[in-house]
Design a protein around this nucleic acid. Structure first.
Lengths: 336, 336
DNA sequence: GTTATCATGGGAAACGTTTCCCATAGATTT
DNA sequence: AAATCTATGGGAAACGTTTCCCATGATAAC
């Protein structure tokens, strides 16, 4: 069942059927009704491949996610899909394996599927300007910013200020009297990752308050409870006196909390703890965990809006910085 | 840059370029090398739309997920993608909104994109045989079985036995001396959902042990901590004496645990609790939560294997039932 | 009554592949 | 030396659309 069949069955030309389906050009009401009836009756759905081939552009938006199992991304993905579908476009969700270059993957996809636009979610901050330019279609980096010498006019982004928010969390702990503050995050070899930027904020806060930065209080770990758990164990084995833990994600914070609690330590009486992201689980953990809560859904929505503005040519590349909120639930305590 | 350009640049015909790219037909080593050199140099990637149009079949596999934010699905999705990519196919992840018919969505997608195969993950058990037949390409239901009068030879599935596993959990609590056991799950209007089937197992266990089934101990709730939390609050307001909670997901169990803990109750001293799924968070909760752990990754792998067997015509429709494991972590206690 | 204008709809090319079928040339057989 | 076979590679049709351009008939203008 293709457009030719529909044309024959409706007694019109294929061009007319196409015009009816796409609501383009002028077609008399009578003709339109006649065609639509046949379309409905035979449940005709145009072949997307032929369509995209001819138009040398599909209306598909791709979402490249690095870390699809990250619970913080879950609601963002749903919102991106909702917003994209609202605009009548299908969303192709592409998971990018850790260690795989998401821009290269996208480059491939763009050529192969004639994408309409791309949203990148998660991943590193390290991309060259040249790469961005190769990607000749509109795209938005969400949750990713870049500190390389990249001309800001060649890409769009929706981010939070990792340095600033991390500074906020650390300062909060310091204001409560903490001096021995651990920091848990992921530090891959690449520069300019979320972890590295949050480390900068952590160090900045320490320095501003005259606290010496002790690398032994910083542990490298994946963004997962299990990794947070083992990292915290490693930390405790160093026999440092610790009064607070700042985890670069709530998942890490949960693992860290478990490590402390299972040793019989109390949160926040013995150790204060604060996470990052604002996932639901942090609230329902016992004790509920303080966190730097990111407006994930708003960020997702903004990403799609910016992408479609770019597509329609209505605006140039844009960089939006969202503010996160320090949510206090009692897992941090004033000491001394 | 298309196949014609490559042909011209290599000094061969387009048919030859196609043969080289697809490794079909016979091409002399010299010609192949010449063409490949040009392909590499210009970084040529064939247009997927043209390809799929001509072949009247793409190699794309679609994964229809209902509940993409379900943490239990996270690892399964990753495994499905890994397995599909391993077989040289791209995976299209399609999120299906709650309440939307996933088969209809797939039907649309199949016609539009000439899919190669479909995997359904999550959702209800209610599908008619006719619908299955309309979907004229190979597909596998994962995490979904059907109790309708559907001929088992028209579909494939990878599931656990919900009734049996639920029976297992409930029996475990009973064996520990519990009589007042709450059950939390989602009961939508549609029949034959995961929740309904697990309820059957729960009731079966009670009856077999001569315990009267009390509907007041069963609460309807979404598969999320917040919903588990409020459902448990509702339960406690009924002033029933409760000694154990069986939650149909670990996310619900976490919400339930939070409700109990925040009232100062102890787990497992005052109330025992057991969840379902086996997500990482249940282990890192404090206390660690007992659960019926599903082999999600194995199930994902099996789904892809079955799908590709169907595609290659190597085998007929098949139904695989996986066994779940009762994981004891101490959140359930023997009483009396 | 003739010409200009307009609304509508059809024909055909083009998008970039794959693949069938045939042509060519060199090698092998008779 | 002629005939046959084999290996290789090219031409062209086809996949199912969209869209440009043109044809047709009706209406309006003169």
């Amino acid at each position: 069942m293709n457009i030719k069949d529909i044309a024959k069955l409706s007694g019109v030309g294929i061009a007319t059927v196409s015009r009816v389906i796409n609501n383009t050009g002028v077609v008399s009401e009578a003709t339109r009704a006649k065609v639509m009836e046949v379309v409905k009756e035979y449940n005709y759905i145009p072949n997307g491949n032929a369509r995209n081939l001819k138009k040398t552009q599909s209306n598909t938006i791709a979402l490249m996610v690095k870390g699809i199992s990250n619970p913080f991304f879950a609601n963002m993905i749903k919102e991106v899909e909702r917003q994209v579908n609202l605009r009548g476009c299908p969303l192709l969700i592409q998971h990018v394996e850790d260690g795989v270059d998401e821009i290269n993957t996208a480059l491939q996809l763009v050529k192969e599927k004639n994408l309409y636009g791309v949203i990148f979610m998660g991943g590193t901050y390290d991309h060259s300007e040249e790469k961005f330019k190769q990607l000749s279609i509109p795209f938005v980096l969400t949750t990713i910013t870049t500190t390389q010498d990249v001309d800001p006019s060649v890409f769009s982004s929706v981010v939070i200020d990792d340095v600033q928010e991390s500074y906020k969390a650390t300062s909060y702990l310091i204001s409560l009297g903490h001096r021995k503050i651990c920091f848990l995050a992921r530090f891959p070899l690449v520069q300019h990752t979320t972890g590295n930027r949050r480390l900068l904020g952590y160090i900045k806060a320490l320095e501003e308050h005259g606290i010496e930065y002790d690398p032994a209080l910083v542990e490298d770990c994946e963004y997962s409870p299990s990794s947070g758990f083992t990292a915290t164990k490693r930390l405790l084995n160093k026999k440092k006196e610790i009064t607070a833990v700042f985890a670069a994600s709530d998942t890490i914070a949960i693992g860290a909390a478990k490590a402390l609690l299972s040793l019989g330590l109390s949160i926040p009486n013995d150790v204060s703890i604060i996470g990052f992201d604002g996932i639901e689980m942090a609230e329902y953990y016992h004790p509920s965990l303080d966190t730097i809560s990111q407006p994930g859904v708003d960020m997702a929505k903004a990403s799609v809006e910016i992408l479609f503005d770019l597509i329609s040519g209505q605006s140039a590349n844009k960089h939006t910085v969202f503010e996160s909120v320090l949510v206090k639930r009692g897992s941090c305590r004033k000491i001394k």
